[in-house]
Design a protein around this nucleic acid. Structure first.
Lengths: 198, 198
DNA sequence: AGGCCGGTGGACCATTGAGTCCAAATTTGT
DNA sequence: ACAAATTTGGACTCAATGGTCCACCGGCCT
């Protein structure tokens, strides 16, 4: 008895979150209906509302949390230790590869858009994600360069924004050049013997 | 007789587009229903389908085109003549001001997301917009610096991506720092006596 | 003047999808 | 084993919304 949820209950809840995450990746959050979820998880409506009293938005929020975790995960182990230029390069490549593979889809994007309107939750999830992400980059910048904290902060934010922008444009146009350019340009100044454009 | 549309007809059509643009700015495209449009324009369902045979998506596409035009407009006259550093600064400020004023809303974003799934049109609109935008920036970079075309291209793309990313983060978190940082960092190298961070 | 074609009104239809409800099945604690 | 609580099934309600249809109006051209 743990907060009124047995082990079985928790398992079902988790199953719903994971399956819904898959669905939203495939069709986007807006196109994912409760019936889809029901079908994909072999559950019934009552279960959905049993585990997520607020209904759909509740489920989507849980999925968004889950996906936010994934975002940082796919950048590991590089993001966790950006202490060398090589590490930065590998990280950069990992990011690039990941988003190219993702292609048009943007799980978190579609989820938060769908929640968007009424959700302080969605906002909080993104803020947390970005903050952690920024912190990792900030640490890397500080370790690799001898920049002032202030400058390093700005650098870290620029890099983060560059990624987001590149991804937006990749998804909007299908072209990867923007992400590549943004990633290169924003990280190039970190290069030990900084000069060319890689 | 112009393609089967009289002056009155064209006026009504335009009225629908403009009014719908306003609606989508206020509530987002997803939350804008045909009945909303009907109410806002004092028209009837039949008119909506008369002028936009494909219905809702047709209207939204027209609005997206309209909004895409606006994006470049608000950057004028600076974007049109980025031949001096002063001009770049003013442009930068104009962009910043514009998006801060827009706040959480992102007309084109919500429109294309809503169309998204089935629309080569949406994609085309964005591609065109980004291409023009990039070209203006590219020209500016070339004029202001003596960079090789290749490098200038990358620079222009980076700046464009930086803006998109900064805007994404502004809208996701409500914080303007990312846009500011991204804009500064990506344009700083253009500065004649380049050095500090402004 | 008169007819044609575009413009307009609005009732009506069909579908979809979120959320409710209650009863049956199963599990857990004692 | 028994009772309480949890989990599950699934039919049902209800509102929203995109889209269809047809009749009427009204301006423009000859």
């Amino acid at each position: 008895m743990n907060k009124g949820l047995t082990a079985k209950g928790r398992a079902t809840r988790q199953r719903i979150v994971v399956a819904t995450a898959l669905l939203t990746r495939e069709k986007g959050a807006a196109e994912t209906t409760l019936d889809d979820v029901r079908a994909a998880t072999a559950t019934s409506k009552s279960q959905l509302f049993h585990y997520f009293p607020e209904g759909r938005s509740d489920i989507l929020t849980a999925v968004a949390e889950y996906e936010a975790g994934q975002v940082l995960d796919v950048q590991q182990p590089f993001l966790g230790d950006l202490s060398t230029w090589e590490s930065w390069q590998k990280w950069r490549q990992a990011v690039l590869d990941h988003y190219i593979e993702l292609g048009q889809r943007c799980p978190l994007g579609s989820l938060t858009t769908e929640l968007g309107k009424s959700s302080a939750e969605a906002r909080a999830i993104l803020t947390t994600l970005f903050t952690e992400w920024e912190e990792a980059l900030f640490l890397g910048v500080r370790t690799l360069t001898s920049a002032e904290p202030e400058a390093a902060r700005i650098r870290a934010r620029s890099i983060l924004a560059a990624i987001q922008g590149g991804v937006v444009m990749l998804q909007a146009t299908g072209v990867t050049d923007y992400l590549t350019a943004a990633l290169m340009t924003s990280t190039d100044p970190l290069r030990p013997t900084a000069e060319g454009t890689d």
